[in-house]
Simulated scan of single mutants.
Amino acid sequence: MAPKYFAPIGGLPGQTELLTGRAVFTTAYALIPKDTMRDIVTSRLPFWNDTRVWVLSRPLSGFAETFSQYAVEVAPGGGSDRPELDPEAQGVLFITHGNARLTIDGTPHDLTPGGYAYLPPETDWTLHNTAKDTLRFQWVRKAYDAVEGLDAPEAFIANEADIAPVSMPGTDGAWATTRFVDPDDMRHDMAVNVVTLQPGAVIPFAETHVMEHGLYVLEGKAVYRLNQDWVEVEAGDYMWLRAFCPQACYAGGPGPFRYLLYKDVNRHMPL
């Protein structure tokens, strides 16, 4: 069965609904539930037509500082010929709904759900929705940390369906990661992967590490341990973790729990 991916669709809650929600912002993590991604909190971007974005994270001094992440919605006929204005920014696109016509250095590529594109700094790229349905995708942006003697990575496209997940040691596939970039490729200073936990699977210890995270839940539900709190999360929720925030997880079922995961990797710590 093909994976299902959740994406925000906006709207507003009714006047009869309660104010109670799950949104949390702490010094260690933030939980941005799907029901906070409403019409009134969208943004527009320069040189993007018929497009709106939910800004899920951005660098904040004293919190997570290495990346930003958007949930993007492009109406039929919309898109951009000047999508990225920062010459230092690299990006990853992950398609959740619809079809994207991505052109890189003049070569067109059609991306469907599960489609993944890595775009290094100063790449000549455009993106348009040439289909009849709304295009929705996740866009992760990070300033590239260049290293003398290492070439910058080249642009590439892939699809999750074509990549075999790698089981975590000793889990027999209950916890697996779909990796779009070889972890030993030192040219890359960030990793954006898909993590899948089968019903009942766990992350069995409180991971505590230097990498910052953005976790956008694509499918399913779970109970996540964030710092000293247990929080329920489901498809469409976003978790934003600063460095060293302890984290663990129980996948709740009845289907797989899956999320798109950002982390910064492969570089010295700035002093």
Rank of each mutant, 00 (worst) to 15 (best):
T103K: 06
G149F: 00
F47V: 07
N159D: 13
Y116N: 03
H188P: 02
A191C: 03
E88F: 12
A117Q: 05
A131C: 07
V41T: 12
V24F: 06
Q15I: 06
A222R: 02
T20W: 10
D151T: 10
K132E: 14
T96A: 08
N193Q: 11
Q15W: 06
P199L: 06
A30S: 15
P270Q: 07
D39H: 08
R136K: 15
L215E: 00
V140Q: 01
R141I: 11
A146R: 14
R136I: 11
R22H: 12
P254M: 13
L102W: 04
T134L: 09
A131L: 01
I104D: 07
A174Q: 11
A131Y: 01
I9D: 09
A146M: 09
W139Q: 08
A164Y: 01
G98L: 06
L93P: 01
D151M: 08
V233A: 04
T123Y: 05
M186R: 13
E88L: 13
Q15R: 08
F47Q: 14
F156G: 03
I203G: 02
R44N: 12
M190V: 10
D124L: 09
D39A: 09
V231S: 07
S68N: 15
L19C: 10
R52E: 09
F94D: 03
A248K: 00
E88D: 14
M186K: 14
D133F: 08
A131K: 01
T16M: 06
V74C: 06
I163Y: 04
K4F: 13
D151W: 06
S43F: 04
A155K: 05
G14H: 03
V210E: 11
V231R: 02
N227V: 09
P256K: 09
G220L: 06
G173N: 10
L127S: 05
G77D: 06
R82D: 05
D162C: 10
A248N: 07
V53F: 07
F244V: 00
P256L: 03
G255F: 06
T130V: 10
D189W: 04
T107S: 00
W48N: 05
V147R: 09
A164E: 15
A100W: 03
L197V: 03
C249R: 00
S57W: 09
G236I: 08
L18Y: 10
P76N: 11
F25S: 13
V41E: 08
T196K: 02
F67W: 11
P87H: 07
L218V: 05
K132C: 00
A28V: 04
T112K: 15
A89L: 15
M269L: 14
D237N: 07
D162A: 15
F47S: 14
S68P: 04
G173P: 10
G77T: 09
T20D: 15
E219Y: 08
V195Y: 03
P121S: 12
T134Y: 06
D110E: 14
P270S: 12
P183A: 05
F25V: 09
R58G: 13
D184S: 11
T16P: 01
C249A: 14
E122C: 10
G236M: 04
R179I: 07
L45R: 14
M269H: 13
D124P: 00
